[in-house]
Design a protein around this nucleic acid. Structure first.
Lengths: 169, 169
DNA sequence: TATGCGTTGAGAATGACTCTCATCGGCCCC
DNA sequence: GGGGCCGATGAGAGTCATTCTCAACGCATA
């Protein structure tokens, strides 16, 4: 993975994240010995094209089809799984169990819209530091904590703009 | 274990939080106008009997069958959904999308075992206060936060005891 | 007892995801 | 250039968790 200078000021050494372009990620794929086929390019471009909004496998397939008509749903799942294993994309799970994919491989949190179910990337900010500190102090005889994931509930921009904020938590 | 209408003689199944017993919850069910049928009693007892370990619908069905042999998987899902709507049980989703149910209706966090996938209730402790304070300060133009959920990763007691702690995050 | 309706079991349907298998198509060696 | 190897693909079947449908059951009330 080509490490860009974009994340220089960050403490974490994972600079492949927000700064990594489509080309960077395709290069990473090839460096691991996998072919950058037209289908894989289209699928990766589809995930990247969604920006901060996380997309389902079916959505990725639809978007990828517009770029490469031969893309198939099975190939989409296979490719997303491959990209996930290589750390190029992440998979998160909706409250209802549906999986969505995001192109931001850096640790971050997610916001799930209570109204439309959209999953949006959120910056970790100070919360991560606080949680990591607290997590070390969390001593429970029944469970040894090694990491955490936070999911925020709320309303996405589109639903708020449309005045749809009535769903209950 | 027989399904009794009152928790007579039994220790409280869930002594934390509200301290609601099986009898309390059945009463809540009836107060809302629903019948406390043998199947529903068995299903509720099955969830309560799991204690701090959260159980899948299939597991609940299996445990409930031991108490009331006529319990069916469809009835289990229906009843769990009803109990969830009444706030008597909670449903949380595994990382892989599978749903598990817990009898603790109070807000709390969950620990998912990286090795065996078990989901364990964890106390919120100081983390909740810290997160709620931070959450109010989280101003993002794309998302309005109203609540949060934390999932910790780690190793459950059984896996640690057996030395199975090799799974990667 | 009769009636109404909430609840049930069985099994089909659904939706997300995974697997299988024949085929395609780069790449390497001759 | 030709042939073989093997990774990658599309189509469709299979799996798994969950939900829906529908006829039958059984409790409560009249």
């Amino acid at each position: 993975m080509a490490v860009t200078t974009a994340g220089r000021g960050r403490r974490r050494a994972v600079a492949r994240g927000t700064g990594a372009t489509l080309a960077d990620r395709l290069e990473a794929l090839e460096r691991q010995g996998y072919r950058a086929t037209p289908q894989r390019r289209a699928i990766l471009a589809a995930v990247l094209g969604a920006g901060r909004i996380n997309v389902s496998a079916e959505e990725v397939c639809g978007r990828a089809k517009a770029l490469c008509p031969t893309v198939n749903l099975a190939t989409t799942y296979r490719t997303l799984d491959l990209l996930k294993r290589l750390g190029i994309v992440r998979r998160v799970t909706y409250g209802d169990g549906r999986g969505v994919f995001c192109a931001n491989p850096d640790p971050h949190y997610h916001g799930t819209c209570l109204q439309c179910g959209a999953v949006v990337d959120l910056p970790r900010g100070r919360i991560a530091d606080v949680l990591e500190r607290e997590q070390r102090g969390l001593t429970d005889p029944a469970f040894a904590v090694v990491g955490h994931r936070v999911e925020f509930y709320g309303y996405c921009d589109a639903c708020r703009s449309a005045g749809r904020t009535g769903a209950i938590l």
